[in-house]
């Protein structure tokens, strides 16, 4: 199954369907199945299939029946994953021909929810702007995943961004340590330092953090070709600028902004990924799985 591109999502209806397609496409492209992990509880035998780890071969069965069987175990513990999705007004943007940031973010979030449910992990969800807009506590059931995806689907972007406030609240709300996935453009009204401060706070509470910063391509490169009166989506601030003249400096500013998170997250052991709305969904999914695997080891 070919992997789904962000622009292809516009022709599909239903976020769950989109998530399934994304995840199934992603899994079909992988050489080894990522869904089964190591455990001490034996579950069943399965006939060997090419690509399976040879270390998991049951040598006894091989000696007895001269057939290749793989030993499968029931997982001992499940992971708690909390997805924090930014639905502030600034997410309601895309340059011509591209998927809106909030739609891209929703697709990423739904895909992660679906993938997590396949691994029978516990899924929690929190949507925010400058306040918590929606929250679903962590549970391990397919019904939870479906509920989360439906919730995501029905969240219109609005309000200002206050990531730090949500992170502070999340620190208090999340009693059990787990994986926290933040999907946002990180346009915090108090600046990146404040956001970073609360990210560190959340990490200090034993949580493992993955940050997906979602930005539109024109936000990164200011690829516009005529002077505009730029009006902020959140604060209605207005400024006249000729993109041709300020593009160079703007890019530098944006590099400083994203670079700050990249550098500081690295220092704090937080996984930070900058995603523009043209990147394939395999990028966040792969990052998630890598982090999960690392976490389970």
């Amino acid at each position: 199954m070919p992997s789904i591109k962000p622009v292809d999502l516009t022709s599909l209806r239903g976020l769950e369907l989109k998530a399934r397609l994304i995840v199934d496409g992603f899994l079909a492209g992988m050489h080894t199945s990522p869904l089964k992990g190591a455990s001490l509880d034996f579950a069943e035998h399965r006939e060997y299939a090419p690509g399976d780890d040879l270390r998991k071969l049951d040598w006894k069965v091989l000696g007895r029946k001269d057939k290749l069987f793989i030993r499968q175990y029931r997982e001992e513990s499940t992971l708690t994953a909390n997805i924090l999705l930014d639905i502030s007004g600034s997410m309601n943007y895309s340059s011509a021909g591209l998927v809106k940031k909030n739609e891209y973010a929703a697709a990423v979030a739904a895909s992660l929810v679906y993938l997590t449910s396949l691994q029978q992990d516990r899924i929690g969800f929190l949507a925010f702007s400058d306040k918590i807009e929606e929250m679903l506590p962590p549970r391990a059931s397919y019904g939870q995943a479906s509920a989360v995806i439906k919730t995501i689907e029905n969240l219109p972007p609005s309000g200002k961004t206050a990531v730090f406030r949500m992170l502070e609240a999340a620190g208090k709300l999340f009693k059990k340590r787990g994986l926290v996935i933040l999907i946002s453009d990180l346009y915090d009204s108090k600046g990146p330092e404040e956001t970073m401060k609360y990210l560190r706070y959340l990490a200090s509470k034993g949580n493992d953090l993955i940050i997906f910063q979602i930005l539109d391509r024109s936000e990164l490169g200011l690829e516009l070709d005529e002077p505009f009166l730029f009006e902020g989506l959140e604060d209605k601030d207005v400024i006249l600028a000729n993109p041709e003249l300020i593009r160079h400096e703007y890019r530098r500013v944006m590099e400083e902004f994203t670079g700050y998170f990249s550098k500081e997250c690295l220092k704090s052991g937080i996984d930070y990924r900058l995603l523009d709305n043209t990147l394939p969904f395999s990028v966040p999914l792969r990052a998630f799985l890598a982090r999960r695997e690392k976490l389970l080891k």
Partner: peptide, 24 residues
Amino acid sequence: ISVKKAKTLKFPETRFVRLAVKRT
């Protein structure tokens, strides 16, 4: 005329545009 005729563009964050304008 070109200044008067500039179109309005809704943009996620004007903070960085302002900063770029200020710097340039």
